[in-house]
Design a protein around this nucleic acid. Structure first.
Lengths: 359, 359
DNA sequence: TAAAGTTGCACAATTGTTTGTGCTAATTTT
DNA sequence: AAAATTAGCACAAACAATTGTGCAACTTTA
């Protein structure tokens, strides 16, 4: 049944030892002074028998699996699935396979997954952590496992990461809102204590401060990157007394929930309320109101992270926390009510629009 | 550095043979008449040392990797990523890990991936094939590899599959269009010669015939499930002389492309043109015009396929092609112009609305 | 008390590969 | 022609687990 051609098969057939066959097939013939004749006959019969070495035995002996663990909070979120795609493609080209683990945004599952992958002797890990704690990640890293963290990193953890410039992305988005006359801007957060969330909220705060606008803590709401959080918080925001004119939504799914609430309340975007969202999506342009978004370089995130990781794996050198921060870009569409349409004539000097000279 | 506690470590420490340790840890103590005392001390020190067997050695010996290959044309397509999510979750619960391969809709890459996975001795495969050819899939299956095919199956291939009732889904969608007065309906296809495409197109044809309407071959266009195909074909459809009033789009991405073309031409949905799409998406409700869609049971597809596969793996029994076809459902939103809004008073008897009694 | 039976475990082979070491035979040197 | 090289490869260990067989030692039976 199974393809059971091993080194032994070839060795027996030729009356040669397995070690010689192995050396020839690994290109070490000259190093071990195998004769041309022997080399040729081995190569020939290996091809004839369609021999391929058993990776399990190889891995066992060499302590190398050519396998990488990809740990992600939700593969069905298009942000992560597009990263997964690029990670997988690059990995394949470099001779590695991907073991996928979806942690369902659950810290316990994440811990389990990491332990499983460590047990399975993967050569390295790309983790987009849930982001609540990192002690077990650190443990595994200190055990010698190459790791790259993606998207949600930990400032206090000395492991290479690649992420977006979330602070600047948010800063620009909020500045854009302010420039267009918005003063009462809500921020619907994702999972708190995660770096992308913190950085985006920080961008929100500092943009307001930069324009000498007060930060109303009651307008910073929410606690998850999911759709339901967007829905609930928007519902509440729309019911309260503060007359918000814009919502800054910290993720694509939050935005979908926000839209659900907004339409349910019979409001229009952007006439009644503006919205600006992190994460551009293929459909962003075709929404009821095409969405103004902060887009991230997903493709590059995937590609860079895998390259950083394989560097770590193959060089055995550990850079002291080599990090990559990718620029974001504000894609202006129709979901923000503009100044000249608002009737709001209050003049706002545009100060030092942070970072407009970057990227 | 690495966690190098093996059976030997324990055996040495206790002055016991490795075989005894192995048997105790595998619960075969009584079968091999190991004394309670020995059993307990082994169990105790194994726990103390935090021993876990090396899966590579285990796999090598047992010829079982507890690993499943998931082969998919495009993981960034939300249809597939939601399937992947459910497959991964179920597999994990059952003690299997997923090796992910994205074939980029490329037959050669698919072949390579399958050979790689076979080499890696995965215990089984879940394949959503590109769908152009199946000889290498058949070869692997005949070699004894358990396989379940998902979404795109091959009618001539005797391998278990799980898919949607694409025919009926399309039939209902088209019937709905006809019931609402549409007569000139275009169909933008996906990859031809794939079963979901063929079945959906067949549903399209037969629904028309069922209403005694002619099938205009010139209105069946396209050749890919991607966005660009939707865009190009819609552009062309809108330029030609036949006054189509509705588009049946065979995939979610095609629909996005179609929308791009429609809006680019300054047309409105559904006033100027109606559209109905296969694949419901989280955003379908929030599009410029909420999209009427044929939704598939992605979650169930993932769960059922993994269960079928693991049945195959663990029972070693091969059902002669056990197949599962899941019902679809038409979600009526706003992208179809309805009869009472059309002014089209032509009376159409609704014949035997196929399958309205199912599900 | 010797034969028979049972208890409790060790030995060694096996899975397929890689690699350090070392041995024989051929070739070269002196 | 004997000694020294060198070519060409085999042997066996190691990676970490599983499993069939077998053998002491102990216990039971007659």
């Amino acid at each position: 049944m199974k393809n059971n051609i091993t080194l032994k098969t070839i060795a027996h057939q030729l009356g040669i030892s397995e070690s010689t066959v192995s050396r020839v097939l690994n290109g070490k013939a000259s190093k071990y002074r195998i004769s041309k004749k022997t080399e040729e006959i081995i190569l020939k019969t290996a091809k004839e028998l369609n021999f391929t070495p058993n990776p399990l035995a190889r891995s066992l002996r060499l302590n190398k699996t050519n396998t990488i663990g990809l740990v992600i909070p939700d593969i069905s979120n298009p942000f992560f699935s597009s990263i997964a795609r690029n990670v997988e493609q690059e990995a394949r080209k470099l001779g590695y396979s991907i073991i996928l683990c979806d942690t369902e945004e659950d810290t316990d599952l994440e811990k389990e997954s990491l332990e499983l992958l460590e047990l399975r002797k993967v050569d390295g890990l790309i983790i987009s952590p849930v982001g609540q704690t990192f002690n077990y990640i650190k443990r595994i890293y200190n055990n010698g496992m190459p790791i790259v963290i993606i998207d949600r990193y930990f400032p206090d953890l000395d492991i290479p990461y690649v992420t977006s410039d979330n602070y600047k992305g948010a800063f620009e988005a909020i500045s854009y809102l302010i420039d267009n006359g918005h003063r009462s801007i809500a921020c619907i957060q994702g999972l708190t204590h995660t770096s992308p969330n913190n950085e985006r909220v920080r961008g929100y705060r500092e943009a307001l401060l930069n324009y000498h606008l007060p930060v109303d803590e009651a307008l910073i709401v929410g606690d998850s990157f999911g759709e339901q959080n967007g829905y609930l918080e928007t519902k509440l925001l729309l019911k309260n007394e503060k007359n918000i004119t814009a919502i800054f939504s910290v993720s694509n799914l939050i935005s979908l929930g926000a839209l659900r609430a907004i339409y349910e309340e019979g409001l229009r975007v952007p006439e009644d309320i503006s919205i600006i969202s992190f994460d551009d999506q293929p459909y962003s342009d075709y929404l009821a109101t095409p969405m103004t978004t902060v887009t991230q370089k997903n493709k590059e995130m995937g590609q860079i992270s895998i390259k950083l990781l394989i560097n770590q794996i193959e060089s055995k050198i550990r850079f002291s926390s080599k990090c990559v921060i990718l620029p974001t870009k504000l894609i202006k569409r129709k979901s923000v009510k503009l100044k000249n349409e608002t009737g709001n004539t209050e003049d706002i000097s545009t100060f030092n629009s942070y970072g407009s000279d970057h990227n």
